[in-house]
Structures are given as C-alpha cells and as structure tokens.
C-alpha cells in the first residue's frame, strides 16, 4: 500500500518534469523575441547580436539536445542561467523565496487559525439559527479575487491615506543600526511593508477554511455524544474546542495541507499587485520574458512543494484518524 503510493507519486513527478520542459516552449515567442522587444522598446538588435544570444543560451540547439541538457541539469541540481537576470536560477529563486515564505507563511497561519475558530463559532450559532449574516459575509469575502482586494487596499491605504508604502519589502538601503534596537527597527520595516499583502492573502484564504470547518463542526454537533456532553453540563468552550474540534478537524486538515502546498503559487497575484519581491512576482516576470530556465526552476519548486505536502498529508492522516489506521476506512473514500 505504501509502496504503491510512493510509486504513483514518482510517476506524477516524472510526468511533470517532462511537462515542465515543454510548457514554456509552447508559449508563442521565445526569450530572444522578448529581448528584441515588441512595443515601447528602444533597443535595436543586430542579426549578429541575436545569433549570439541564441547560441549563448543554447536556444539554437535541436529540441532533443535542449531536453537532454535540461534533464542533465536537474540531475546535477543545476537549473542554468536566467536569461532575464543573467544570474543562476538557484540563486535567484532562493533570494526571492524567503520573502514569499514569510508573507504566505504568516498569512496562512493567521487565516487557518481564524478560519477554524470562526467556523466552530459559526456552526454553534447556526444551530441556534443566527449565523446567516456572518455566513453570507464570509461567502462574499471568499468570492473576491485577491488582486482586486489587493488593488482596493493599495488605493485606499497607500495612495489615499499614505499609511503604507506602494511596493517593495523593505525601505530601500535602510540602515537599521546595531543590536536589539536595530533588529526591532528592521522587523518594523518589514512588517510595515508586508502588512497590506499579508492582509489580502489572509482575507481571501480565510473563507474556504471557515466554510469547511463550519460544515464539519455542524455535522459533529449532531452526533449523540455531543448531546450527551451537553446534557452533562460541560462548559461550552470545552464542548466546542475539545470534543467537537477533534473530530471536525479531520477534513480541514487535508485542506490545510493542500493550502500549504499551494502556498508558493498562491501569492503570484498579490506579489504582483504590491510589487513584493517574492517568487510569485519572479514567476510573472519569467513568463512575460519567456525565461525558460527560470520558469523551469520555479515550476519544479512548485511541483515538489505541492507533491510533498500531499505526500505528508497522506502519511499523517492515518495517525490522526484511528479508524483509517485500523483499516475501517481509507483515505480516498
């Protein structure tokens, strides 16, 4: 059973590696077409310059040789040189990754916690038939695309009120000073820059967890053992957050793991709106400029994260649910 799971993961992984190579090349135009510039560009390239670029990046090689180089690169951990930035893809991704992990990590934690708490409370109130307005509000919140919410927040708080900066992740060239004061000043600066994008991500992500938690809790609340507990006169907090939560959390757990998997890709729009230097913004630039090596590197990172999280969920789930462990149920019902 376990071997079978790992085998299917491996097959998916190999397929994705192959797709990774071909997808960027299916897009019309290549990296050199981008450098030549379509519109509002001021650079006039000569034929010699073009030929040199093509051969430097190996884009004049037959496709199968490019593919061979790509596979060889993956095996040796070398993703090549970004055409847009002329920097090693690995270096580029690592330097942008920290910002995305910070932004999306904190936003995910907040949205998961709030989603769970609000979901439980909402389900309790639903039983009393008075959570409808709140439920509707959350549904609406969940329907707002992140870039629109981001834009609204940006216009309101940065343009109109001037409370937050327009873009970036820190004040340019800021010197925070030494010691503890410097560290605090640095943290303040980083939080100040990340506040709006973090808010946006938190708000748009809250509702799916909330909705699932609410439904799961509501189902559990119907169980006879809850009725017993209630009749026993258990305090409400204990009833909800101990007895109910434990069982209602199971389906939510899978969603959370998926959420973490999509953590890296989820921020593409938000990072673009706020010009936040994470890998989402990097991906947007890579696609626009047809930067094949950078696109391949990023897609691969996304693939590994998403597959990895799924794998972890598959492995941890039985530990959380004794029924699966005992073989009474399976993960894939």
């Amino acid at each position: 059973m376990k071997n079978k799971t790992i085998k299917s993961y491996l097959i998916v992984f190999i397929l994705i590696i192959i797709l990774n190579f071909f997808l960027p090349r299916i897009l019309p135009g290549g990296p050199v077409a981008f450098i030549q510039g379509g519109d509002d560009q001021s650079f006039i390239m000569t034929e010699e310059q073009k030929a040199h670029l093509l051969s430097y990046y190996g884009l004049d090689l037959p496709l199968h040789e490019q593919f061979y180089q790509y596979i060889f690169g993956i095996l040796t951990g070398d993703f090549g040189l970004s055409i847009l930035y002329k920097t090693a893809v690995t270096t580029l991704i690592l330097s942008h990754m920290k910002w995305t992990l910070f932004l999306v990590g904190i936003a995910s934690i907040i949205s998961i916690l709030l989603g769970i708490i609000l979901g439980i409370l909402s389900a309790w109130n639903k039983r009393k038939k008075n959570d409808a307005p709140f439920f509707l509000a959350m549904l609406m919140l969940g329907a707002i695309p992140e870039f629109i919410l981001g834009m609204v927040l940006l216009i309101l708080f940065s343009t109109k009120l001037g409370w937050f900066p327009f873009s970036g992740s820190t004040t340019p060239f800021a010197q925070y000073g030494e010691g503890i004061i410097g560290i605090i000043a640095g943290m303040k600066d980083i939080l100040h820059h990340s506040f709006l994008p973090m808010m946006t991500l938190t708000v748009v992500n809250i509702s799916s967890i909330y909705l699932l938690m609410r439904n799961a809790t509501f189902d559990v609340l119907k169980e006879p053992y809850i009725y017993t507990a209630e009749v026993k006169g258990l305090p409400l907090k204990r009833l909800l957050f101990r007895h109910t939560f434990k069982n209602a959390f199971l389906p939510v757990f899978t969603l959370i793991m998926l959420r973490f998997g999509f953590m890296l890709t989820g921020a593409i729009f938000v990072e673009t709106v706020f010009s936040y230097p994470g890998i989402g913004k990097l991906l947007q630039e890579a696609i626009l400029s047809r930067d094949y090596p950078l696109m391949q590197g990023l897609f691969l990172i996304f693939t590994i994260t998403i597959l990895g999280m799924n794998l972890i969920a598959d492995m941890v789930y039985p530990k959380l649910d004794p029924r699966i462990r005992r073989g009474e149920r399976t993960v894939f019902e």
Binding site: P28, G30, F34
Partner: peptide, 9 residues
C-alpha cells in the same frame, strides 16, 4: 498579445 508573442508574430 504580450511582448514576446508580438515580436514573434
């Protein structure tokens, strides 16, 4: 279309 497509067309 986007820049790269424009140029290639």
């Amino acid at each position: 279309v986007d820049t790269a497509t424009f140029t290639s067309l």
